[in-house]
């Protein structure tokens, strides 16, 4: 892996910043929590002590989920952008999030007796994300222009929104309420005992992403060149869709839909690192993506006493202008 001094310094800075921001995140909230509280919540946990409960059951899972959501969605976006050779691709824009949302909506609001446990929502979100990933993949083989694929992704998003609306009109008040709560997006719903499952999915996806670094680098040159370099395009596409579906499905299932992170962060990483080496891009996406969501969540918690903002709203507020800037930059 060729890495310049500048890239090295940048990565080092990010590596130092991420734990600091994560630590700050742990100490931001409505209640004052000390180092001792964290220590005791891990080694001398007392479930009648509010500080222990808040540290262990709320803040540690919330911080971990912020890291996983930011890093995971950024990697998903990076892989999609490389696969479709399109900087405006991402799980949200291409409708992968919508697929996960649709399946969660169908589970909650139509009473399909598939699964009712947490694992059920995750499984459904995964199936939805994977199915819509395959649909996008299918269309990508049929259209030549990049803009067409984005339009198809947007149409898929509209289509699923319509189906979700239909499910909403047919659902009772309680189901509707549950889905609306989920769709608002939140990092605080995750529980400590769910983290091992989430971390396992996340770890497997990251590992998978690193395993396809070479084919990803080859894909940047185009499908023909990649084939000439010995890349099995079909297999790589399937692996990328699988990784993206797992990450997007897990994050969407536990946090609700989080927009624009997968689109904005990989582009920011490319601008900062000026490289096509996917080993560097993946590491940087993990670090910047995690930091981005952590910072968003810190901001949300700081303004919470005055103004309530769901995570999905804040990422969209920051992400949408960034995408407009990106488009304008490319047009120049």
């Amino acid at each position: 892996m060729n890495i310049s001094k500048r890239q090295n310094a940048l990565l080092l800075a990010l590596l130092i910043c991420l734990p600091i921001i994560a630590l700050i995140h742990l100490f931001v909230g409505q209640i004052d929590i000390s180092f001792t509280d964290y220590f005791d919540s891990i080694f001398n946990f007392d479930d009648r002590n509010a500080s222990h409960l808040i540290s262990r059951e709320l803040r540690i899972p919330r911080m971990t989920m912020a890291v996983i959501a930011g890093a995971g969605l950024s990697i998903a976006g990076l892989l999609m952008q490389t696969l479709f050779n399109n900087p405006l691709a991402g799980p949200y824009v291409l409708g992968i999030n919508s697929g996960a949302s649709l399946f969660v909506a169908l589970t909650i609001m139509t009473g399909i007796p598939f699964f009712t446990s947490d694992l059920g929502i995750v499984t459904n979100a995964l199936i939805g994300a994977f199915l819509f990933g395959l649909i996008i993949l299918f269309f990508s083989t049929m259209v030549r222009m990049q803009i067409s694929l984005l339009l198809i992704g947007l149409m898929l998003g509209s289509f699923t929104s319509a189906l979700v609306s239909l499910a909403q009109t047919a659902s009772d008040a309680q189901e509707l309420k549950i889905f609306t709560m989920w769709a608002l997006g939140s990092l605080q719903k995750v529980e400590l005992h769910q983290l091992p499952l989430i971390l396992a999915c996340f770890g497997a996806s990251i590992l998978g992403a690193f395993l396809v670094v070479k084919p990803l680098n080859a894909l940047v040159l185009g499908d023909k060149e990649a084939r000439l370099l010995g890349t099995n395009i079909k297999r790589v596409r399937l692996v990328i869709i699988l990784i993206t579906a797992i990450i997007t499905g897990v994050v969407t299932a536990f946090c609700g839909p989080i927009a624009f992170v997968g689109l904005a962060v990989p582009n920011l990483v490319r601008i900062l690192f000026k490289t096509q080496s996917h080993a560097i891009l993946i590491i940087a996406s993990i670090l910047i993506g995690a930091m981005f969501i952590l910072l968003c969540d810190i901001a949300i918690q700081l303004i919470e006493p005055h103004f309530i903002m769901p995570i999905n709203a804040l990422t969209s507020i920051i992400g949408a202008p960034f995408v407009i800037l990106l488009v304008l930059r490319r047009l120049k």
Binding site: Q30, I54, L58, Q301, E304, I308
Partner: peptide, 14 residues
């Protein structure tokens, strides 16, 4: 009132 879950847990364990 719109309170955080932290505030609620802190105030209402008992």
């Amino acid at each position: 009132l719109a309170l955080s879950i932290e505030q609620i847990l802190n105030d209402n364990l008992k």
